[in-house]
């Protein structure tokens, strides 16, 4: 499997792709989501599911962006407590959609909603978390939940970290696993600037000019339908699969980016109220 470059502006330093390329193991096992990998292609990592047995621990990064959730899992050896060595080495895999959805639900229940969560779970218990997570910490008196659910829920509660609670290099490791473009450092919506500085028309004019001049040729053939977010003040840009994902990634790389313009590659507009999606070159 070839680790292809994710297009970005030249001065982007968000990821360390050369380092990733040097690691044959990392490349071979990179089950993390990369842009362009359709959900069905998760199957390319299915052979790694052998690691997802009940003896393994998994650390998962669930980033919810619109209706798209991106999950990467680094699982450690059976019986070992998870530690930093789990990240970026050895066994990298992804959950199935159903498993990740369950884990995501639990993590959200614990956090009371959130945008990006890191949750630690014993992989074999994920299926048992389908039932609602007991509401209170420990909650031994809640007879509706099984002992396994209690243990798992407690585990999740105790082990849900804010992203920055992870060691810095571990978090960057996760970024590399994810291929850079999709798994970025956490930028919650509340960290977005409340307002932009330029009027919308000016953002549109500048953004379109930058896209046509510098970006379009690089992305149009490979990333049709993806979202390009452009900081119109600096020309810095990123590509992701959703509007929120692209803006989040852009601001993770350039926190000062306030005037952001977004384009859906190959289309005249990001969204349409006209009942059809009109290609840019047909317009």
């Amino acid at each position: 499997m070839v680790w292809s470059d994710t297009p970005r502006s030249a001065d982007s330093d968000a990821t360390d792709l050369p380092a990733a390329r040097r690691s044959r193991t990392l490349r071979r096992n990179s089950g993390g989501y990369r842009y362009g990998m359709r959900p069905l292609l998760y199957g390319s990592a299915h052979h790694q599911f052998k690691y997802l047995d009940s003896g393994n621990w998994g650390i998962t990064c669930i980033r919810q962006s619109g209706s798209t959730s991106v999950r990467g899992v680094a699982s450690g050896d059976a019986g070992r407590k998870p530690n930093r060595s789990c990240l970026g080495h050895e066994h990298v895999s992804v959950f199935t959609e159903a498993e990740a959805s369950l884990l995501q639900r639990c993590a959200m229940a614990v956090r009371g909603g959130g945008y990006l969560m890191l949750a630690l779970a014993r992989v074999g218990t994920i299926a048992e978390l389908a039932a609602p997570v007991p509401p209170s910490r420990g909650s031994r008196g809640d007879r509706r939940a099984s002992p396994t659910q209690h243990r798992a829920a407690g585990l999740i509660r105790r082990r849900v970290w804010g992203p920055f609670a992870l060691p810095r290099h571990a978090w960057f490791g996760l970024e590399r696993l994810g291929g850079g473009a999709m798994l970025s450092r956490h930028t919650a919506p509340r960290e977005f600037a409340m307002t932009a500085r330029r009027p919308p028309e000016e953002r549109a004019r500048l953004g379109e000019a930058i896209y046509e001049r510098e970006i379009r040729k690089q992305v149009e053939s490979l990333y049709h339908g993806a979202i390009v977010a452009i900081d119109v003040n600096t020309g810095h840009w990123v590509v992701a699969d959703t509007v929120l994902g692209a803006a989040e990634l852009l601001r993770a790389q350039r926190p000062e980016a306030t005037d952001v313009w977004s384009v859906r590659v190959g289309h005249r507009a990001v969204y349409s109220f006209a009942g059809s999606s009109v290609r840019r070159d047909a317009g």
């Binding site: 307002t195 932009a196 009942g275």
Partner: peptide, 13 residues
Amino acid sequence: PFVTSAQAILANG
């Protein structure tokens, strides 16, 4: 929070 500005196509095209 403001995220971005973007184009949309209205019902009249």
